[in-house]
């Protein structure tokens, strides 16, 4: 049963592997190009296991932003994992802490997406052991391939010609995360405010424009949502 679940997880994750290889190569290479040593690049890629945030943070850092802005940007790009944890947590209530720590270490977009779909769908009501097998089935192969790709990327490093423009990949990958989350007017307005402000404020020192634009856009979205909620509440009152 657990063996079958592990293999099912492994199989479900296979279609994501070409992307994992490309992203790993890029994460390793960008890290070296940003001035990290090969060892630092390999260490960061393999322990952080979050390519998008790594590339974004290091591009900021090598573009002149102080390290604290790079760390903040990394935290912001990875904030979605808080929501992943929130939605996965109830499905693994019985799991001991040491397993939750391991799950957290390997929690990436596709592992979360596949596992949540499985636990809430076909795998509803499975025992913890079987869920664990599925989760780590999706996670372990991906991690092994990620580590290999990052090491290869760090070795290739500056050998990848800039004319390939691979540094556009993180932005395109983030678009794939942003678009499904723009489901209503407040979110759309927040995204538009963010585009305009981030572009206008791009020349501010230390790349703080990113944080200001994102923060203001968030407040605008929240405010618009509040207005809609207030209106709905008034509408339902007799």
């Amino acid at each position: 049963m657990q063996r079958a679940a592990f293999l099912a997880g492994l199989r479900d994750n296979l279609p994501f592997m070409p992307g994992t290889i490309a992203f790993g190569l890029l994460a390793g290479a960008v890290s070296v190009q940003s001035g990290l040593t090969q060892f630092q690049a390999m260490f960061l890629s393999t322990i952080l296991f979050a390519g998008n945030s790594q590339i974004v943070a290091l591009q900021l850092f090598s573009g002149g932003a102080p390290w604290i802005i790079a760390v903040l940007a990394c935290g912001v790009v990875n904030l979605r994992h808080v929501m992943y944890g929130m939605s996965l947590g109830p499905h693994v209530r019985e799991a001991p802490t040491r397993w939750k720590l391991l799950m957290a270490f390997l929690m990436v977009d596709n592992v979360y997406g596949l596992s949540h779909a499985h636990f809430a769908g076909d795998g509803r009501g499975l025992d913890w052991g079987t869920k664990r097998a599925y989760y780590f089935g999706t996670a372990l192969l991906g991690y092994a391939i990620w580590v290999a790709a990052c090491i290869a990327g760090a070795v290739l490093g500056t050998g990848i010609p800039p004319s390939w423009q691979l540094d556009a990949i993180p932005s395109l990958g983030m678009i794939a995360i942003i678009v499904p989350n723009v489901k209503d007017c407040p979110a759309l307005l927040a995204a538009l405010v963010s585009v305009v402000l981030a572009t206008l404020l791009n020349d501010l020192p230390l790349r703080v424009g990113v944080l200001i634009a994102g923060g203001v856009a968030m407040l605008v979205g929240l405010a618009l949502e509040q207005v809609a909620l207030d209106r709905a509440e008034r509408g339902t009152r007799p």
Binding site: R80, M174, G209
Partner: peptide
């Protein structure tokens, strides 16, 4: 809920 639309957009789009 607004993190992707607001913050990720600010990071991705200027690039």
């Amino acid at each position: 809920r607004f993190v992707p639309a607001a913050l990720l957009t600010a990071i991705a789009v200027p690039n």
